[in-house]
Write a protein that binds this DNA or RNA. Structure first.
Lengths: 217, 217
DNA sequence: TGATGATCTCAGGGAAACCCTGAGGTAGCG
DNA sequence: CGCTACCTCAGGGTTTCCCTGAGATCATCA
């Protein structure tokens, strides 16, 4: 197989230098950039086989950079390597034209697998989040597949979730909503099943991430 | 100069693997771990010359790990390598016994400089934030020291709080810390009293606001 | 119209956590 | 030495957690 020419983009310079050592085992690193705008410029000049990029970058974020690159340099395969492990970011990445999605918690060997997969014309997603991504897409077949998962909850479930995240006890929530404690417990149970969460702590962090409640209170 | 034995800690596996390649040019990498608690264990066994560690790590954050390591393995020099570029974290790190502080935006060459500096018994701080650190120090001379961190809690209380906020159950926390469930409950009780909080939900939001844990994980 | 699916409602019940009180052990310090 | 701070743990009543089963309502669809 042809040795791919690779352009790398990450705003963490020291991390980028380290990753280069790993990537050099799989291909030729033709450039390294530290912001999205420079990435778009360099990609047009270098026309690399693979662009390895982060999402969080100055001047232009990785998702918007990807949307431009799919039009400007359609022959380059895009592989995201980011700390974001949420299904929302992953689906956005693929909608933006990505061929691969890794997270920084992924094992180093996944980098090799992803590069080889996209060079074969295949897609690659880190197994660490495939389950969540599938769950998210299945639940939103009709509507936009990239909306936050909170929309898959019912009205009542969102009410309960917010009160839980605000620190209200089960009994308090029951009296606020004029339902029994058992019903509140049931809603929490269903919410956790729906979102694939397994503790009240995760429930609260989810509500915070979705903006249902604020941390400053 | 003696070739230093280095232990590395970062919860981003793929980043860690890349950094290893850089570090191997400066010393012998004797181990790599992905959480703070394993770091403390391994450091006691390996007694490395240098510990290169992140702040954000599961089970035990890097700052608390450093506080333990300065007592348990005082001969090991601690170099932080983190994405946190705020003076607060940097000063906390040095108060916790660090000999070096880098951020992930630092240039790769700084890694070499930091390692060599601490091996000579000197300290190293990335020039990217020295100005801010000095400004913060001067500002805190006259007025109150600006410290939003969880310093009012004891070491043990912070450990429990982090695990609670990570979504671990009381029984799980007890086994991780090798103490009884009752002791874990007691710590939570004292933490809530100390912080004037009244539910696990508020506890979690507090930990998030203080940066003990991240919502995106 | 009857069937179906989605939702809300609630109970049972064992396990676990919550909340508080009391109390012993250890380390540092004046 | 006494004092303080901290960690440790038990007891025990109350509450919540987690899951299963089940009836009621309502909109939609065949």
């Amino acid at each position: 197989m042809k040795r791919p020419r690779i352009l790398m983009a990450d705003d963490h310079a020291i991390v980028l230098a380290g990753l280069r050592k790993l990537v050099e085992a799989e291909g030729e690193v033709v450039g390294m950039v530290e912001d999205g705008r420079t990435l778009v410029d360099m990609a047009q000049q270098l026309r690399p086989d693979i662009v390895l990029l982060d999402i969080s970058m100055p001047l232009l974020n990785g998702l918007d950079a990807a949307r431009q690159l799919t039009k400007l340099v359609p022959e380059s395969k895009l592989i995201f390597l980011t700390m974001h492990a949420t299904p929302t970011y992953a689906t956005e990445a693929f909608k933006a034209g990505a061929a691969g999605y890794l997270i920084k918690r992924s094992a180093a060997v996944e980098l090799k697998q992803a590069i080889q997969a996209v060079m074969r014309g295949q897609h690659y997603m880190t197994p660490l989040i495939t389950k969540d991504v599938l769950a998210a897409t299945l639940q939103s077949q009709d509507g936009q597949p990239s909306k936050p998962l909170v929309t898959s909850l019912t009205q009542r479930q969102r009410e309960v979730l917010q009160l839980v995240a605000e620190g209200k006890g089960t009994k308090t929530i029951a009296s606020i909503l004029n339902i029994s404690v058992k019903t509140v417990e049931f809603h929490k149970f269903r919410i956790m099943g729906e979102l694939n969460l397994h503790s009240t702590a995760e429930l609260i962090k989810y509500a915070i991430a979705e903006g249902l409640v604020s941390v400053s209170t």
